[in-house]
């Protein structure tokens, strides 16, 4: 029982990171029907940006107020990652809108290779560790055999995720911006006839996806304390799995899928074997796509002739 509760906490932490990345996939797929293959690498890039800002801030102001520093890092990382994703959309995807079906996907794969190697070239191929932070933890169940605790890191990650998801939910559901976005998702041509600036809306979608990926990047850095240029691929694929599992195009689905993937991964490592945890994630992806392609909360896709 204690083991289960502890793994539940760990799984929720990991799952919220996946969920944040998954939203980027699901929004872009919903609005332009494309798998944004480079999104995992945008996440990795954001972790690097966060690392650099974290070091700058702690060099300039000292490492005293860690929470304040983290808030600044979060804002800066969100801004600069959004700028990156905005540029990527502008340069690599927009010219291909209306081109043949596979062109944007190939372009995204190229972008993913580019980003990964760009970071490798400018920051070097080695692991980049930062000094551990927020190390204390709260004891939840005081048991002699297996004490259950939640660390400050995990509290910070879960709370930040909930707060930002709430803000994001408000943005999509209640503001004119979100309305334009949902309109484009349903019917791009009709939305543009009714005066929605489709190009601008798509740009904003990419910016929002990147901002949430940046949150995930900061949280990843806080959780593991180390980042590497190749770290984008596997979390990216897992987050995509999460988006598909939750039903691609559905925002609550992405979060739900992320939490499920995180829980499954952690439970698999705890109860079976840690070696095959990535295999488990990929198997889920294959099984879900083959047997329930519309996911848990997604609408089934109707093929029109």
């Amino acid at each position: 029982m204690e083991v289960f509760v502890q793994q539940l906490i760990n799984g929720l932490t990991l799952g919220s990171i996946y969920g944040l990345i998954a939203i980027g996939y699901t929004m872009v797929f919903g609005i332009i029907g494309m798998v944004n293959f480079a999104h995992g690498d945008v996440f990795m890039l954001s972790a690097f940006i966060a690392l650099i800002f974290f070091m700058l801030i702690s060099a300039w102001f000292g490492a005293g107020l860690i929470v304040l520093a983290l808030i600044f890092v979060l804002i800066l990382a969100m801004f600069f990652t959004s700028l990156w994703n905005w540029t990527i959309e502008r340069v690599a995807y927009r010219p291909l809108r209306g081109s043949f079906r596979l062109a944007p996907l190939i372009s995204a794969i190229g972008m993913s290779i580019f980003l990964m190697n760009f970071v490798q070239v400018v920051q070097g191929p080695r692991n980049k560790p930062i000094p551990p932070m927020l190390n204390k933890s709260i004891l939840l169940i005081d048991s002699a055999t297996y004490p259950v605790s939640i660390s400050y890191k995990q509290v910070v990650i879960i709370v930040t995720t909930i707060v930002l998801l709430a803000a994001f939910w408000y943005l999509v559901q209640k503001t004119p911006l979100g309305r334009a976005q949902r309109a484009c998702e349903q019917d791009r041509k009709m939305a543009s006839l009714l005066g929605v600036d489709v190009d601008r809306t798509i740009s904003i979608t990419f910016v929002m996806g990147a901002a949430l990926a940046a949150v995930a990047g900061v949280m990843y850095l806080v959780l593991y304390g180390v980042v590497n240029f190749a770290d984008g691929f596997t979390p990216g694929v897992k987050a995509f799995t999460a988006a598909v599992l939750g039903g691609i195009g559905s925002l609550p689905g992405a979060v739900l899928g992320g939490l499920l993937i995180g829980l499954i991964e952690v439970m698999w490592s705890a109860y079976f074997t840690i070696d095959y945890k990535d295999v488990a994630a990929f198997c889920i992806l294959a099984v879900v796509l083959v047997f329930m392609p519309s996911g848990i909360l997604g609408r089934p896709e109707v093929e029109k002739v």
């Binding site: 081109s99 043949f100 372009s107 794969i109 190229g110 580019f114 190697n117």
Partner: peptide
């Protein structure tokens, strides 16, 4: 050689934009 894959990825994007087919 460090720039090998960097150029490779970039070329993929550029060729796709230049000649999507």
């Amino acid at each position: 050689t460090k720039y090998r894959m960097l150029i490779f990825g970039f070329a993929m994007v550029v060729i796709m934009i230049w000649k999507p087919r």
